[in-house]
């Protein structure tokens, strides 16, 4: 693992754009395509908003930590964690269209978007302890030395 970047943000939706911008700035140095950069930003946006909305529901406050590293040449790992309420049934949470938040016009597509825009996703969560989403994204290289 190289070039480790770790940022901690208050778990409020206002910081969603900041989380995306930080991830995009990091990824930019690895020469991604425009499409790859959009995919990274979108996946981060989903993970961060989930932490802020579902991790700390209601009046609960807390923080979201984002850790980014280059794990192989042109392969980026992004870990987004909260210390919130956690997920009881991870497999069910990851199903397309599944949401626990029906009143607020959520589509339940956050995990599906993360899955399709990255190469690998891992979700670790324990009720009462919090959630960590690990995303791995390989960037296309047009040449190999």
């Amino acid at each position: 693992m190289e070039k480790i970047l770790k940022v901690q943000m208050e778990a409020v939706l206002e910081n969603q754009g900041l989380a995306r911008a930080v991830a995009a700035a990091y990824a930019s140095e690895l020469d991604p395509t425009v499409e790859e950069l959009t995919e990274i930003k979108t996946a981060v946006s989903e993970a961060f908003s989930n932490a802020a909305i579902h991790g700390y529901p209601g009046d609960m406050s807390g923080s979201v930590t984002m850790e980014i590293a280059t794990i192989r040449p042109s392969t980026i790992m992004i870990k987004i964690s909260d210390q919130g309420v956690g997920i009881e049934d991870i497999a069910q949470a990851m199903e397309p269209l599944f949401t626990t938040d029906t009143g607020d016009e959520r589509s339940g597509m956050g995990f599906t978007v993360m899955e399709s825009f990255t190469d690998k996703i891992k979700v670790d969560s324990r009720p009462g302890e919090g959630t960590t989403v690990t995303l791995i994204k390989k960037l296309d290289t047009y040449y190999d030395f």
């Binding site: 995306r20 959009t38 930003k41 979108t42 946006s45 989903e46 908003s49 607020d104 016009e105 959520r106 589509s107 597509m109 956050g110 599906t112 978007v113």
Partner: peptide, 10 residues
């Protein structure tokens, strides 16, 4: 310039 799954809900 950017949209995530929130757009679906909207």
């Amino acid at each position: 310039t950017f949209m995530d799954s929130s757009g679906i809900g909207v």
